[in-house]
């Protein structure tokens, strides 16, 4: 497939020059082309924020909904039409802050969707407040003395909930990121990829340089099937590991267990209305 298949002819990008979001956008377009994703069957779901604008800059179906609310519609879209490939993509504030409850429960449901989170450890769109993943001591116009809250650890939480795919990448390590994002999309079940993405405008602490120096790639000694080891990696002090932390293949998928598909595999929109079952229930009330 042509690399340009997902390219929009015109688009007015609202990101700052040098922003890590560009790297992710380019990666996504490449990956989708390399995977020969069917553009008619591919849906992006996002919330609100700088990261959440990503589907606007690709030639794809999208549901760009509310801040924090990408996962519920993503789950429902997949459950309503299982033939669609669904990618829920937004920022760390969106997914882990405003949408925190949906994050927990999406993992529990395990729909076959990919959840990509642009983690810049700051609120970009609203101009630089702390995000759930901001490091302690990070100063902002609101956290004037620096963040005092414990940073949210999405990977540890996902592993604790036995998420079926848990990974972290840094957009600056292109090839590595690409390889793992691909695996996440191909994985059957809920797949979380937390992507370190520098915000060059509002986060002067976690820069490209900083991420390069404070991360390392997981090697073969890490077994992603080992949940305990994965949890250890997710909570490790010191440098941040990058790679697939945990993968549970064959975990039962939400939409495959739904009774609406027990007799009929067709997407809901293709089904003809059947009045008989309704009539039968009405008849029962007359008995």
């Amino acid at each position: 497939m042509e690399k340009t298949a997902f390219e929009l002819k015109e688009c007015d990008v609202a990101w700052c020059p040098g922003c890590g979001n560009f790297g992710i956008l380019n990666l996504m377009k490449e990956i989708l082309a390399e995977l020969s994703a069917d553009p008619q069957k591919l849906v992006f779901v996002s919330g609100i924020g700088q990261a959440a604008k990503i589907p606007q800059y690709m030639k794809v179906h999208y549901f760009n909904g509310l801040h924090g609310r990408a996962l519920p519609p993503a789950t429902a879209i997949k459950a309503t039409n299982r033939e669609l490939t669904v990618i829920a993509e937004s920022g760390d504030g969106d997914m882990y802050g405003e949408g925190g409850n949906h994050f927990l429960h999406a993992i529990r449901r395990n729909p076959d969707i990919t959840n990509i989170v642009h983690n810049n450890m700051v609120y970009g769109l609203t101009k630089g407040q702390a995000s759930p993943t901001s490091e302690k001591g990070f100063k902002t116009p609101i956290q004037v003395n620096g963040v005092i809250l414990e940073p949210f650890n999405p990977l540890a939480i996902a592993i604790a909930l036995d998420a079926s795919f848990v990974a972290r990448v840094f957009v600056g390590f292109r090839d590595h990121a690409k390889q793992i994002l691909k695996k996440a999309i191909l994985h059957k079940g809920y797949a979380l990829v937390d992507v370190f993405q520098p915000c060059v405008t509002f986060n002067k602490m976690n820069t490209y340089q900083w991420f390069r120096e404070h991360t390392y790639l997981l090697d073969d000694s890490h077994d992603p099937k080992d949940r305990t080891q994965a949890f250890g990696k997710a909570t490790e002090a010191g440098k941040w590991p990058l790679g697939i932390f945990y993968q549970y293949e064959g975990k039962p998928v939400f939409e495959e267990q739904l009774s609406v598909y027990a007799q009929d595999p067709q997407p809901l929109f293709q089904r003809k209305f059947r009045k008989e079952p309704v009539e039968q229930l009405i008849r029962k009330l007359k008995e």
Binding site: V43, V45, F63, G65, L66, R69, L71, P72, P73, A74, T75, A76, I77, K78, A79, T80, N81, L84, N101, H102, L104, H105, P267, L268, F269, Q270
Partner: peptide, 19 residues
């Protein structure tokens, strides 16, 4: 759903996908 916020947003997702 996990809460009513999710319920409503799921409903909208479903309509979007043809439900």
């Amino acid at each position: 759903a996990e809460d009513e916020i999710a319920a409503m947003n799921m409903g909208l997702g479903s309509w979007y996908a043809g439900g």
